[in-house]
Amino acid sequence: MGMSVIIAAARPEEAEQILKLQYLGYQSEAELYGDWTLEPLTQTLESLQAELSEHRVLVARLGDEVVGSVRGWVDENGVGQIGRLVVHPRMQRHGLGRRLLEGLEAQLTADGAAGGFELFTGHRSLGNLRLYRRLGYRETEVREVSRRLSIVTLAKPVPATLAA
């Protein structure tokens, strides 16, 4: 019988695995937009280590391997900011993105993100947009960054099941 994927808080010693996964996962985004300077592809290990200590970071673990990750924090307006959701390409379409996102929402709500959640993605990232909409996120803004890229911001209120 195969191993189960566990969703848990990231450990500091997993920073390098998370960074490698992020680099692998964002290759398709870079190709989609013709932009290899996307922040997830240029982030340093030191910067990621700082995020691990400052933000909530969840990982999906298959044994000792990190196969998914997401991070977030509650901003000064009480909104849970969610970013860098990534799942290993071989593990996609198994619900890990949903599990990571819902797990982070629950943790940020416990931290006091009573106002809801916000995240963003590129306008051509149709799989991301489908996932976020399926999970209750709605488009709040589209901002053109360049001729090739518009950033779509999506938000959702805290679900009643988390607010209780």
Rank of each mutant, 00 (worst) to 15 (best):
L154Q: 06
G63T: 12
V142M: 14
E51C: 15
R138E: 14
E65R: 09
S125G: 06
G127D: 15
Q92W: 07
L154V: 13
S47G: 06
H94P: 04
L45M: 10
T42N: 02
H55K: 14
L154N: 05
V158A: 08
G127V: 13
Q43R: 12
W73R: 15
V87H: 00
V70G: 01
V74L: 10
G63S: 14
L104V: 11
E102P: 09
H94F: 09
Q49P: 03
T140R: 11
V79E: 00
L101K: 08
E141F: 08
S150P: 12
G116M: 04
R130N: 08
R98P: 09
G136M: 03
V87W: 00
S125F: 04
G116C: 03
A30M: 04
V59D: 04
R124F: 01
G97K: 00
S150F: 06
S53D: 06
G115K: 09
R134V: 01
G95T: 10
L58V: 07
L100V: 11
T44R: 01
E51K: 15
L108S: 14
L52P: 15
V158P: 04
Q107D: 14
D35A: 06
A110G: 03
H55Y: 10
S53N: 08
G95A: 09
L32F: 01
V142K: 13
L32C: 01
L41D: 03
A160W: 07
V145R: 10
W36I: 14
R147G: 15
G68T: 07
A50P: 08
A160N: 11
L100N: 08
R71H: 08
Q43H: 10
T42P: 00
V142Q: 15
L162A: 10
E118L: 11
G136Q: 04
R93M: 13
G112I: 11
S125R: 07
G83P: 05
L149D: 09
T109H: 12
E46P: 01
T121R: 02
G63F: 09
I151T: 12
Y137C: 01
D35S: 07
G116F: 02
T37Y: 07
S125W: 02
K156M: 10
R147Y: 15
Q81T: 02
Q49D: 02
D75H: 05
E51T: 15
P159F: 00
L45W: 07
G68C: 09
V70E: 02
T153I: 01
H55M: 10
V152I: 10
L52T: 14
E118P: 11
T140P: 09
L85M: 12
E54K: 12
L104R: 06
T121H: 05
A114F: 04
P159C: 00
V66L: 05
L62Y: 08
A106I: 03
G78N: 12
H94C: 10
V142I: 15
Q92R: 13
Q107H: 14
T140L: 10
D75S: 05
G122I: 03
V66Q: 05
D35Y: 02
R143G: 14
Q43T: 12
V145H: 07
S125E: 12
G97Q: 01
